[in-house]
Design a protein around this nucleic acid. Structure first.
Length: 423
RNA sequence: GUGCCUGUAGCUCAAUGGCAGAGCGCCACACUGUGGAUGUGGAUGUUGUGGGUUCGAAACCCAUCAGGCACCCCA
């Protein structure tokens, strides 16, 4: 009994209660995606490693992917992200799709990481993208979708914020500081880590990268300048659009947001919960201008973001924002009085189901207290008893389990009685 | 891939080298045609797994697996 086979490291098992959280997130995601006119789609769950090799970043491909050889000797990967599949699928139908394309998806992904709070090796992720329009207003729409989601799950602007930056803006600032192109990636990564490092240690790392004092001071000036966006046309248009979309209270400019993925070229953004213990991004995304060309399509710009189910699930749980999920599998239990009446109970349950009710029948004769306890634990609202007395008179006893009241009615009136009790 | 912490009944935890326990839950009965409340009784286990030290290990040591925290990375 104790020798059970363990689950694979970093995966979760979805018992019914966890499943209702997953479905809740799916419904909220679908709701806000459809409200903005996005269509649901999906890609394959396994892909060749080559798809990710080009642009996803070395860490993701070489260290964090589940890659294995299939029986034919080819290297395949459990997808660690969706955007490259999106780019390929768009490129394949580039001449027949109607642009702008607005697509969303919610499905499983795998990353070979060290599991910890907010990080598992198997997770579900919402992806949503718009392709074919390159404008700050399109970027603003995606940010508004993100804000709309936060709002729909009850996360107020006081509780969750979306921080926005722009890679082109940062590049021009880096140009002004004479930071050479080959150091940009390392500098970006360092910027990403600034909030979780000791200031002195951060300075030391910056000097190790070869930044001189003037560049270091300049960099710190940039990262502390939260008005930097005002001199950038993309960002001023972005914030004007966000204002029109009614979500500006959710969004702030932050020059410290860089994001790791290589394919982002313009706007980048990440959402964080601001009050809780979890310092992980709820969602993140941005604009990618070159991805389609990289997988063999005509140049086409896109913008999108992704949200994993793990972090948002923990945040909503800890904030007490989750609704009480209705775990009742059925509203009515038909009890089985004894062996001779078993099939009469089955027939009754069947008639009730045909009228659209959710009805469970106790699967074998058992003592009534046991069957009532079962109904109670399953939080069912009504229990029916079809005993010898009722059967002899074509009747059935209908008990309201929350009030304790019980009435005996004719079998042809039982549906009305149940509907009245259920309200 | 690195460092630190943790692992005892279904759950939450106690027992710090000397008989493995409590609360909750579970089961039975009070109540053989009716659940929740209450009372009484009952069952829990190879102390994550494997090895070692010891007269004696849940406890100490080593390995391993899993979880957590911090790196790394990111949804």
């Amino acid at each position: 009994m104790k020798k059970s086979i363990q689950t694979v490291k970093g995966v979760r098992e979805f018992y019914p209660e966890a499943m209702s959280l997953r479905n809740y997130l799916y419904e909220k995601v679908r709701g806000v995606s459809q409200a903005f006119g996005y269509q649901e789609w999906d890609g394959p769950f396994i892909e060749t490693i080559d798809l990710y090799a080009a642009k996803s970043g070395e860490e993701l491909v070489k260290k964090q992917s589940f890659t294995f050889e299939d029986r034919g000797g080819d290297l395949v990967t459990l997808r660690p992200e969706l955007t490259p599949s999106l780019a390929r699928m768009i490129a394949a139908k580039q001449n027949e799709l109607t642009f702008p394309v607005r697509w969303w998806s919610f499905g499983p992904f795998w990353r070979y990481e060290q599991p910890q709070k907010g990080r598992t090796r198997e997770f579900f992720q919402w992806n949503i993208d718009m392709l074919g329009v390159n404008s700050p207003e399109a970027d603003a729409e995606l940010i508004a979708v993100a804000a709309g989601f936060l709002r729909s799950v009850g996360l107020s602007p006081e509780r969750a914020q979306i921080f926005v930056n722009n890679r082109r803006l940062m590049d021009s600032e880096f140009d002004a500081l004479d930071i050479p192109p080959e150091k940009r990636l390392d500098v970006s990564n360092l910027v990403d880590r600034r909030t979780k490092m000791e200031p002195a240690k951060w300075d030391e790392n910056a000097r190790d990268l070869g930044l001189n004092q003037i560049q270091l001071d300049g960099l710190k000036g940039i990262l502390g300048n939260f008005d930097l966006w005002k001199k950038n046309e993309e960002l001023t248009r972005l914030f004007a659009a966000l204002d029109a979309l009614g979500v500006s209270e959710y969004v702030k400019f932050d020059p410290n947001i860089m994001r790791g993925l290589l394919y982002y070229t313009g706007t980048v953004f990440e959402a964080f919960e601001t009050t809780g213990s979890l310092k992980r991004a709820i969602l993140g995304g941005g604009r990618y201008d070159n991805l389609l060309a990289d997988v063999g399509g005509q140049p086409l710009s896109g913008v999108g973001f992704a949200m994993g189910d793990v972090v948002i699930g923990i945040i909503l749980q800890e904030a007490g924002l989750l609704p009480d999920f209705d775990l009742t599998p059925a509203s009515v239990l038909v009890t089985v009085f004894d062996k001779s009446l078993l099939l009469k109970s089955y027939a009754l349950a069947s008639r009730l189901r045909q009228s659209g009710l959710k009805v469970m029948v106790y699967p074998e004769p058992a003592k009534l207290p046991r069957q009532f306890k079962f109904a109670d634990k399953m939080k069912m609202k009504i229990a029916l008893v079809l005993g010898p007395d009722e059967a002899a008179n074509s009747q059935v006893a209908v008990k309201n389990l929350s009030s304790g009241e019980q009435v005996v009615v004719r079998q042809d009136a039982v549906i009305d009685t149940i509907r009245t009790m259920l309200g």
